[in-house]
Simulated assay, not measured.
Amino acid sequence: MTSSPQAPFSAWARGQHRQIDADFPPSARSGLLHLLCDLVERRYLRDWTVVARELHRIGRLSVVTYDSSRVPSLNQARADAEAALEGLRWDKVYDFCERLHGHLAQEIGYEDNYGNYTVEVSRGDMQTFIATELQRLFLEEDLAYEFTEGTVRRRGRKHTVELVAKSQVVLGDSRLLSARKHFDKSLQFFRHATHPDYENAVKEAVCAVEAAGKALFPMAKASTLGDLVKWLGSTTEVSVPKAICQTFTGVYAFRSGGEGVGHGGANGGKATLEVTEYLLAVCASQIIYLVDLANSMEIDVPF
Rank of each mutant, 00 (worst) to 15 (best):
E199I: 07
Q6Y: 12
V50Y: 03
G250A: 14
Q127E: 08
L61P: 02
A77L: 08
L88I: 03
G269Q: 05
N200S: 07
G269D: 02
R53V: 09
D125N: 12
Y114I: 09
T65E: 11
T249L: 13
V119T: 15
A222I: 04
Q76L: 09
H192K: 01
D67H: 06
R46H: 10
G213S: 02
R175L: 14
Y114P: 00
L39S: 01
L74K: 08
F183T: 03
N295V: 01
L171C: 04
T2L: 15
S3V: 14
D300L: 15
L143D: 06
G59W: 02
L32M: 09
L32N: 02
V229D: 05
C207E: 15
A79C: 04
R191N: 12
F254L: 08
L100H: 05
D80G: 00
E107A: 04
K230V: 14
E274I: 10
K203V: 04
A165M: 02
Q19F: 15
C245S: 11
E259T: 11
R18N: 12
L100A: 08
R154A: 12
L61H: 09
V301E: 13
G172C: 04
L85P: 00
L232V: 05
K230S: 09
L35S: 01
V161F: 12
I299L: 12
A243Q: 13
G15C: 00
G31M: 11
K230N: 07
V251Q: 05
S69H: 10
L35D: 00
D23C: 02
K181E: 15
